[in-house]
Simulated assay, not measured.
Amino acid sequence: MKIELKGVQETLLIPLAARAFETKSKNPRIKDVKAVEMVSKIEYDFSKFDRKMSKEGVIARTMILDRETQKFVNEYPDVVCISIGCGLDTRYYRIRYNQVQWYNIDFPEVIALRKKLIYENKNVHFIGKSALDISWNDDIYIEDKKVLIIMEGLLMYFTEPEVIQLFCMIKNHFPNCTILVEIMHPFIAGCSKQHDTIKHTDAVFRWGTRSGKAMEKLCEGLHFVKEWNLFDELKSRGVMFRIAGNIPFIRNKNNKIVKLVLQ
């Protein structure tokens, strides 16, 4: 299958490739059979994304988000999960409990590609709209269920006004939700051209924040709960990661997964 993706949309292939590479490795930390299947069906030079730093970061964030999503689902089995900027994410298939209603949101072109590779079912729904298109909120049926919103590899491609706009949209439509989001430090956001995989695309990082706590200023009612540095999952990946993870100047600039609640 030949595909034509440009700019930010092309970056969805980076985590897909990382999950497939990891699944096929000798001692995989995650198993994503669907990622392997999708990579095998797409005619594309995935080798340019086979870079250690980026691959390790993707797997670290995947492990954290899988774990925290599973914890939330364990507590609220009939939760509504909303993956904004889903790309070719396959988290639903790694989560146990089939009562979950899962909504994947991305550009129409991305959702069209998803539909060629992954099927919707009674629990998994696709919405082909921009994250900033306020109408996608009307396509989600929540009743009185708990809502978990996941934003992975997304906000760094937005401007700060767009980030604020998105959080205000979420607050207006899902006022008591829980949010798991990946954040990038402003220093790293300024280094798109040096990034080991992003430099192979036309995408550019546009926003970063120093901490999850700092995100509270984005939207009234947004409260910081906890954050996890990706280095926390990389301690066993070699001396370089162990040393870097213990140097505050380096550690503080690594990506983090942040848990927030809207109240």
Score class of each variant (00 low, 15 high):
T69R: 01
W136N: 04
Y93G: 02
I170D: 02
T201P: 07
S40E: 14
R96A: 13
Q165E: 15
W207V: 04
N254I: 04
M1L: 08
R114Y: 04
F167T: 09
N172L: 12
Y93E: 12
L155T: 15
Y141M: 10
I14Q: 02
K193V: 12
V36E: 05
M151D: 05
Y44E: 07
A17N: 15
V239E: 15
V80Q: 03
L12Q: 05
R206E: 11
P15N: 11
T69W: 01
I111P: 01
A244P: 05
K129P: 06
L234Y: 03
F49H: 08
C168S: 13
E220L: 13
F46V: 12
L262C: 10
V39R: 09
N254F: 13
T178Y: 06
K193Y: 14
F205K: 11
V58L: 10
P108M: 07
L88F: 10
I118G: 08
L234V: 05
K52W: 14
R206S: 10
H173C: 06
F72V: 01
S25A: 09
K71D: 09
N255C: 14
Q194E: 15
I140P: 00
P15S: 11
I14C: 01
N74R: 04
I134N: 15
I243S: 09
I183A: 01
R67A: 09
I198G: 13
T90E: 01
L218V: 04
V39D: 05
Y119Q: 14
A20H: 02
M53W: 15
A35S: 15
T11A: 12
S236I: 08
